[in-house]
Structures are given as C-alpha cells and as structure tokens.
C-alpha cells in the first residue's frame, strides 16, 4: 500500500490482486441474496483506490480495507439489492445481442439506444458503439481512437455508469 501511495503501479497492482481474493472470501459468506458478490468486490476495490488517502501509514492494511468492505456491505443492504444491480444491468441489457429479443422489441431497443447514447459525449459514444455494439476488442478500439487500452476501458466503464446513473432511476439523487 505504501508503494501504491507513492505511485508505484506494479506493487500496487499485486496488492489489489491479493485483496480481491480476500474480498471474495469476505463477501462469499456475507453477501445478501440477490447481490452479486463480485460487484461488491469491484466496488470495494474502487473505493480502496479512490479513498486511499485515508489509509494511515503504520495502520494494519487489512483492518482498513475490511472496514471499507463492511461499509460497502452495509451500503448494499441499505440500498437493497435492486438498487445495487439495476443501473449496470439495465445498461448491459440494452447491448444484448438482437437474437435474444423479439423483432419489434429489438427495433424499440435500438431506438432507445440511439436516444440514450446521444446524451453521452462524442468520444465515449463512439467507444461504446465500437466496443459494445460493433464488437471490436478493446485493443482494436484503442488503436482506432489512438488511446491506450486502459483509457478505453475506463471511458466505456464511465460511459455505462453515467447511463446507469441517469436511467437506473433509483440511484439518482443519492449522491
């Protein structure tokens, strides 16, 4: 963690890797029914990352990280399972392959999709279209747009999250 605070990527990546294993164990036993434990693992990793300034040098790292994990668990229980799952899933459903849906429904979904995407900035719209609809790999999209792969992932993730926040309904106004 100390290396992470100092900005060293490699030891930090290893730390997050190990931590994700611990978190999987933590949530496997405690995760409320209907909540995807892996979602909680990811949320906790993001929180560990974005809130890493609250880690005190010399404090046991696991105690700190588990306190965040507990908070995230309580947060998930508080919001109820629907709230936790809805945004990402609804956004994902829009991108499901057409054969999984009926013809009329597919047309409607396509129209909705265009309308929804129009809200996003130009670049993330193009990226989401390439990665999620056209089916380019992250690498191909990265080459096409002259970005790094991780930048593409982050942009797509943020775009989907923005859509989820906007159309998930339940999440709006909480933050």
């Amino acid at each position: 963690m100390l290396a992470g605070l100092a900005g060293e990527a490699e030891p930090y990546r290893r730390l997050l890797n190990e931590l994700s294993g611990l978190l999987r164990g933590f949530y496997a036993r405690r995760c409320p029914p209907g909540v995807d434990a892996e979602d909680l693992v990811q949320e906790t990793l993001i929180a560990v990352h974005t809130r890493r300034a609250t880690y005190d040098v010399g404090q046991p790292f696991t105690a700190w990280a588990y306190a965040i994990a507990r908070y995230k668990l309580i947060d998930a229980l508080r919001r109820g399972r629907a709230h936790l799952r809805a945004p990402q899933e609804e956004a994902d459903a829009l991108f499901a392959p057409p054969e999984l849906r009926g013809g009329a429904e597919a047309a409607m979904a396509a129209r909705d999709l265009e309308r929804v995407l129009a809200d996003l900035p130009e670049r993330s719209r193009a990226l989401i279209r390439d990665v999620k609809i056209t089916g380019l790999s992250t690498r191909e999209a990265a080459e096409k747009h002259g970005m790094t792969e991780s930048a593409v992932k982050v942009a797509v993730h943020r775009g989907l999250k923005a859509l989820g926040g906007k159309y998930g309904g339940s999440d709006v106004g909480e933050d």
């Binding site: 900005g7 930090y12 997050l16 990352h49 300034a53």
Partner: peptide, 28 residues
C-alpha cells in the same frame, strides 16, 4: 466475472497519482 475484476485492477493501477502525506487532515 473475475476477468472483469482483473481489468478493473489493471486500469486502477494504471492511474496512480501520488498521494500527498496527511491528505485527509488537509481536506478536513
């Protein structure tokens, strides 16, 4: 699912600015 988590870890550790000491106290 876990592959997604690996991606996440990858992108998190790719974006790693240094944290100033006592950042929390300063924010308060």
């Amino acid at each position: 699912m876990s592959a997604k988590t690996d991606d996440l870890i990858q992108s998190l550790s790719a974006d790693l600015p240094k944290v100033a000491p006592r950042a929390a106290a300063r924010r308060v």
